[in-house]
Every structure is written in structure tokens, then in C-alpha cells.
């Protein structure tokens, strides 16, 4: 699906965005989702909820109604499309000029946000290990440590 959306971007004369889509979505986000599926790999029978079908039906109704609304809006509006203009020769240069002239502040803010997300993800996902509690037994062979010493964790509530 991500790759097909990248193909649509190429159809829309957006080659840089298409490359970014392939690199980021197919390369990074897909791998993240696969890691999530792998790490949370438990076939879990969810408890059946009472009146769950009401939620499903109402959500389907709302989604279909929203789609109908958007479709009528799209089809009824007269879009001032001007097909005589030629697309710019290189969208990469234009995007670069935008980034370093009038979108400079959002660009820098995006870099800071990426750094914050990186640090936050590491802090959230790391295991809390116990440091400095090795047993010092002289003369005996220590048992092979197969995993990091992890602080015992009791599930919350």
C-alpha cells in the first residue's frame, strides 16, 4: 500500500516526496510495525464485550457518512485546475529553496522533534537493568549469564 501511494506521488509530479515515502514508510515505519508485531507476539483471545456490534455499526455509519459528505463536496466543487501550466522542472530544487527560505523555522523544529522522539522512544522502551549487583564469588565458575539482569516488575493493577 505504501509503495502504491509512492507510485501515485510519481504520477502527481512529486518525485522527491515519492522517494521520501518509499524510504521512510517502506523502510522505517514498516519495520517498526513488524517489530511491534514480533515483540507483542501473543495470540490473545480478547474478552467479548457486550454491545460491541453497536460500536461497529455506528462507526461504519459515521465513516460511510463522512465519505459520502467528502465525495459530494469533491464532486460538486468546481476546481480551478489549470492544465496549461507546465510543472516545474525539478521539484527537489524548489523544495530545497522552500526549506531554507520561508519554511526554515518548521524545518528546524522538525529536526528538534525528531531528536525528542528518538530520545523519548529509547527512554520508554528500554528495560531497567540492575547495575552493580554482581555476586563476587572467588574460585567458582560463575554461571553463564544468558540475559540482562532485569529488575523484577509487578504488573500494574
Amino acid at each position: 500500500m505504501f509503495i502504491s501511494i509512492a507510485g501515485l506521488y510519481i504520477l502527481l509530479n512529486a518525485d522527491f516526496v515519492s522517494a521520501a515515502q518509499i524510504l521512510i514508510y517502506v523502510g522505517a515505519v514498516n519495520v517498526l510495525i513488524l517489530f511491534a508485531i514480533m515483540l507483542v507476539n501473543k495470540t490473545e483471545a480478547f474478552k467479548p464485550l457486550p454491545r460491541r456490534w453497536i460500536r461497529k455499526v455506528s462507526t461504519a455509519f459515521v465513516a460511510l457518512a463522512l465519505f459520502a459528505l467528502l465525495a459530494t463536496m469533491v464532486l460538486q466543487t468546481h476546481w480551478p485546475v489549470d492544465l496549461t501550466l507546465q510543472p516545474p522542472a525539478s521539484s527537489v530544487e524548489l523544495i530545497g529553496e522552500h526549506f531554507f527560505s520561508d519554511y526554515l523555522l518548521p524545518f528546524e523544529l522538525a529536526s528538534i522533534l525528531l531528536l525528542m522522539a528518538l530520545v523519548g522512544a529509547v527512554v520508554l522502551a528500554r528495560r531497567e537493568t540492575i547495575i552493580g549487583e554482581e555476586t563476587a564469588i572467588v574460585g567458582e565458575e560463575p554461571p553463564p549469564v544468558l540475559q540482562l539482569p532485569e529488575r523484577p516488575r509487578e504488573p500494574i493493577a
Binding site: 516526496v17 522505517a28 507483542v40 521539484s91 522538525a110
Partner: peptide, 23 residues
Amino acid sequence: QVFTVFVITIAAAEAAVGLAIIL
């Protein structure tokens, strides 16, 4: 397209943080 690049950036950050929260 510039906005799209920003949205892709935010989406990547969101995916990373969301995965960490889920884990």
C-alpha cells in the same frame, strides 16, 4: 509537497513513540 515532507517526518516520529508506548 513541503507540507507533505513535514507530515511524513511527524508520522515517523509518531510511529516510533507509539511503538515504544505499546511495548
